[in-house]
Amino acid sequence: MSLKPLLRKLFLVDLIKGLKVTFNYQAPSEAITEQYPLERPVIFERFRGQPRLNSNPDTGESLCIVCNLCALACPEQLIVVKGERNPTTKRKEVVSWTYDLSRCMFCGLCAEACSTDALELTQDYEMALYTREGMVLDQAALERGQEPKRYEK
């Protein structure tokens, strides 16, 4: 063994190098922890989260034309859309629209399939519930979107 590696070994250079790294990281400014309920994470625009049914902002009518494309596109077959043709306006209108959140994997295929941008996966992500009840969303819940819950002890 030549001298330099021997000396490096004797003076524990390898270990001290590692110790230096961990020591330098101790500064509180290096910490990357996000204190979740107090600090909100940044959610980007394309995030696929809580589903929402959009309605026309001017008239308040649902944008959904009951074409059933979303239900067909969904691999989990968790969307059930039932509609009826309105005899006066000759438009199909939603009778029942359910979305089973508990089985959704947020792949986004349904929103991609929707021809009118009625169904959209939004940036809300706090969808956890204590029970399975309430996981099946109906049209009203989907249009309302998520009500943000404040963090309280």
Binding site: R46, F47, M105, F106, G108
Partner: peptide
């Protein structure tokens, strides 16, 4: 990933 496709882990 999230910015590109909207999911972090199961990206699709």
């Amino acid at each position: 990933f999230e910015k590109y496709c909207g999911a972090r882990l199961t990206t699709h």
